[in-house]
């Protein structure tokens, strides 16, 4: 039972990272019907932005608030930077091919992903860097289940961001416009929605969330490298599909489920199969319920 609870907790912590990244996929897919392969790389850029910010800040803040202040500043800077990167990617690469065939768009997305990875390898160097430990680790033991303050921080930040996003999309005018564009871009344009602005904004928000994911994961596992976004990106996409792509609660649910599935496989089975479980889940879900757990089935129009 303790092992089970322990795995559950680890899974939630990992899953909340997947959920944050999956949100970006699902939002972009919602408005553009595009698998943004570069999303995982934005997550990587987020981690690196955090790394360089923390080096700039180093020593200027001391240990104010047990590192929380510094972590907060890093999170903000990185989210803003990545929001800019996301908008730039959309403007330069995706907007020119928005009306092209799906294949073309998909290939462009693959190209953008390769470009970011390789430029990052040139700029940052291919060898892993060590993210400074901003918040000293504290371990808690609760009836045999060990958890750290970092895991709690990850969970709490993820939950706050997700609630914020949900409120934004449900309660604000811009959020409503976003839903309208996701539903039907042409009709939304006719209703006076600035579709280009909404798509830019979607990329900005999605990328900011991915950056947050990148920072949070680096607080826990300090090794960062230019290819760290490859696997996480794809798994987060799997999480989005699992929950039902285009559905925001679905992305969260999918992320959490995937995180737990992975830790359980690693905990009870073999950790070498860890990477395969995501794809296995994906294939099973696509065969049984292609719309995902919370997605709505779509009738093909002729």
């Amino acid at each position: 039972m303790t092992v089970f609870l322990q795995q559950l907790l680890n899974g939630l912590s990992l899953g909340s990272i997947y959920a944050l990244v999956a949100l970006g996929y699902t939002m972009v897919y919602g408005v553009l019907r595009l698998i943004n392969f570069a999303h995982g790389d934005v997550y990587m850029l987020g981690a690196f932005a955090g790394y360089y910010t923390s080096r700039l800040l180093h020593g200027h803040l001391g240990a104010a608030g047990g590192g929380l202040v510094e972590a907060g500043i890093i999170l903000m800077v990185s989210m803003v930077a990545c929001a800019g990167v996301g908008m730039l990617i959309e403007r330069l690469a995706y907007r020119p091919v928005r009306r092209a065939s799906r294949l073309t768009i998909l290939i462009v997305a693959i190209g953008v992903s390769l470009l970011i990875e390789n430029v990052a390898q040139m700029v940052f160097g291919a060898e892993p860097k060590f993210f400074p430990q901003i918040i000293p680790e504290k371990r808690f033991d609760w009836a045999g289940v060990v958890f750290t303050n970092q895991q709690i921080l990850v969970l709490a930040t993820a939950v706050v961001l997700m609630i914020g996003l949900t409120l934004f999309i449900r309660r604000t005018r811009t959020g409503k416009a976003m839903r309208a564009v996701a539903h039907n871009p042409d009709a939304a344009r006719l209703m006076g929605v600035n579709v280009n602005f909404i798509i830019s904004l979607t990329f900005a928000i999605g990328s900011a969330l991915a950056a947050a994911g990148g920072i949070l994961v680096s607080l826990n596992q300090p090794g960062i490298d230019p290819l760290m976004g490859l696997m996480t990106g794809i798994k987060a996409f799997v999480a989005a599909v699992l929950g039902g792509i285009g559905s925001i609660p679905g992305a969260v649910l999918g992320g959490l489920l995937l995180g737990m599935a992975e830790t359980f496989v690693a905990g009870y089975g073999s950790s070498t199969y860890r990477d395969a479980i995501a794809f296995l889940i994906l294939i099973v879900i696509l065969l049984l319920k292609p719309a995902g757990l919370l997605g709505k089935g779509q009738v093909e129009k002729v």
Binding site: I35, R102, A276, F279, L282, L287
Partner: peptide, 28 residues
């Protein structure tokens, strides 16, 4: 057989996933 009933992007992702599963199996 199963995945070609899916279209476009989903097929892309399933084939991608399949490739990775094969690789993980070989590793083991």
């Amino acid at each position: 057989m199963p995945s070609l009933r899916l279209r476009g992007d989903y097929l892309a992702i399933v084939t991608l996933g399949f490739g990775e599963i094969i690789r993980v199996l070989i590793l083991n």
